[in-house]
Amino acid sequence: MSNHTKLENTNSTSLGQTIANASKPTSFLNSKKLKKAGLFALFVGPAFLAFSVIVLIPFLTGVYYAFTDWNGVTGNVTWVGLDNFKYLFTEDKQFQQSFLLTIKYTVVAIVLTNIVGFGLALLVSQMLKTRNILRTVFFLPNLIGGLLLGFIWQFIFIRGFQSIGAATGWSLFELPWLGDENTAFWGIVIVSVWQGAGYIMLIYLAALQNVPQDIVEAAKIDGASRFQVLRHITMPMVAPAVTICLFLTISSSFKIFDVNLSLTNGGPFKSTEMLALNIYTEAFVNNRYGLGEAKALIFFLVVAAITVIQVSITKKREVES
């Protein structure tokens, strides 16, 4: 308790007292400084310790392992320089394919998720009688983790589509969706858009609700068409939300793992194996930790680059507005 009383005094010192304290004996000053530091450590320490052990140190050691031939089992870790990276870019066809596929998937997924999400937001921002329940419905898939969604859609693609195809005769539903590399890719896209659109919708919706109605009314009185209002008033007003949504979908698409694992597991024949799944397989199935780390480092650099671009664009916007 006595400790606390002293600390209170420390905290309540005004600037004047602090200056006055500076002339006091150093031992007193040190103990006060020590107590402040102790309090700081007590408040920040637990979170920072967990963070360091769980995130910081493994990340940094991981960077080191990317330049070794570590296999995780034996204690032998040999420095191999850039060999892992050379191997990845010259010989590892699966990695190169996964990398290109992930980029292709990311582009497709961000475009579709944002278009669908924005469309849904436009719909449910109208004065519909069912708008609240519809918002819930569109958001619902987002609540459920990618793993379960992938399993749900496995059933839809395998049994559900077959049944719809038999009933309607539409050839689209009679394709072997998950059994063909092209359709399996689009299967993953469909599930991700279904999952992500509702989330993106919420952000666009919040932005749409901030568009001042008097400006819209004024434009209409001046004879602007619906499309003109959308193009020249609504779109510029929601532009910041577009930036947010684009980057949210870029990083979540680039990091896709759960749906990839549960829907196709990279199949057929590893043709839909995206980067995150490829890294996982390299490390925990092939037990080539060093190589897996090299992939993970490249993965990190891409994600970091995307984020840096995002932050600089957002900052620039903030300054302009």
């Binding site: 700081f40 769980i54 050691t61 995150a276 890294i279 993970a296 994600v303």
Partner: peptide, 28 residues
């Protein structure tokens, strides 16, 4: 200054994808 440094470390590390941590993490 230390508060800023620690805070920025926390924030910057949000960028790190799980795949870049998992292998050494499981070992540790």
């Amino acid at each position: 200054k230390i508060s800023n440094i620690i805070f920025m470390t926390f924030v910057a590390a949000m960028v790190i994808p799980f795949q870049s941590i998992m292998i050494p993490l499981i070992k540790t």
